[in-house]
Amino acid sequence: MIVSRGCEDCRAAKLLPTAEQAVALRSTLHNCNAGAGRAAEVASAKREFPKFGLQKLVYTDLRAAGLGAQAAIRTIKKVSDAYTTLRANISPETWESRA
């Protein structure tokens, strides 16, 4: 698909990883999911859900576990956003009783 907007050309392409790249991607996804689980445990235990507070608590651990800097930051943000969504969708009484 080619879309022309003035001087810009946008092209859509499907990238297929090699077998070696697929293994690396799968490993990275597994590490990110494990990191998200760890971040969620810490967030729940410490009652620290905002991104920056949670980042202070778990960033070093995620990096030590093998996540790259960007993957660690994005994982922390996903966990923080998940708690924000959870809190928005349950009653205040239920949220407080989870403490």
Rank of each mutant, 00 (worst) to 15 (best):
D9V: 15
T28Q: 07
A64P: 03
K78H: 01
C7P: 07
W95V: 05
R63M: 10
A72Q: 04
N31A: 15
Q55T: 13
N33T: 08
A36Q: 07
R11P: 02
V42A: 03
R38F: 14
G6S: 03
A22F: 03
V3Y: 12
S27C: 08
R5C: 08
R87A: 12
D81P: 00
R38D: 02
N33F: 10
T85D: 00
A72L: 05
L29W: 08
A99S: 14
Q21E: 14
A22V: 02
K51C: 09
S97G: 02
E48A: 11
R87T: 08
A40P: 00
R87E: 15
T85N: 08
A65E: 09
Y83T: 05
S44P: 00
S80L: 05
W95G: 05
R98Y: 11
A82D: 07
T18N: 04
D9N: 14
C10N: 01
P50R: 06
L29Y: 05
K14Q: 12
T85C: 01
T75N: 04
E20Y: 12
D61K: 10
A24Y: 02
K14I: 15
K56Y: 03
V79N: 03
R98P: 01
I73F: 05
A43S: 07
I76Q: 03
Y83F: 15
V42W: 02
L67C: 04
R98W: 13
C10H: 09
A64Q: 13
D9H: 15
R38V: 01
E20M: 01
Q70N: 12
V79S: 01
Y83D: 04
K77T: 10
L86I: 14
I2D: 13
K51V: 08
Q70F: 10
W95D: 02
L25K: 00
S91W: 00
A39W: 05
A39P: 03
K77G: 09
L57G: 02
A34I: 11
D81C: 00
C7W: 13
A88E: 15
P92K: 00
V3R: 14
T85L: 06
A71H: 13
A99I: 09
G53S: 10
R47V: 11
T84N: 01
A43N: 07
L25C: 04
R38L: 11
A64Y: 03
G66V: 02
E41P: 02
L54V: 09
A82C: 07
L25I: 10
A45H: 08
T60Q: 14
T75F: 05
L54E: 05
R5A: 13
T94Y: 14
R26A: 10
A72D: 08
A43V: 05
A45L: 07
D61A: 12
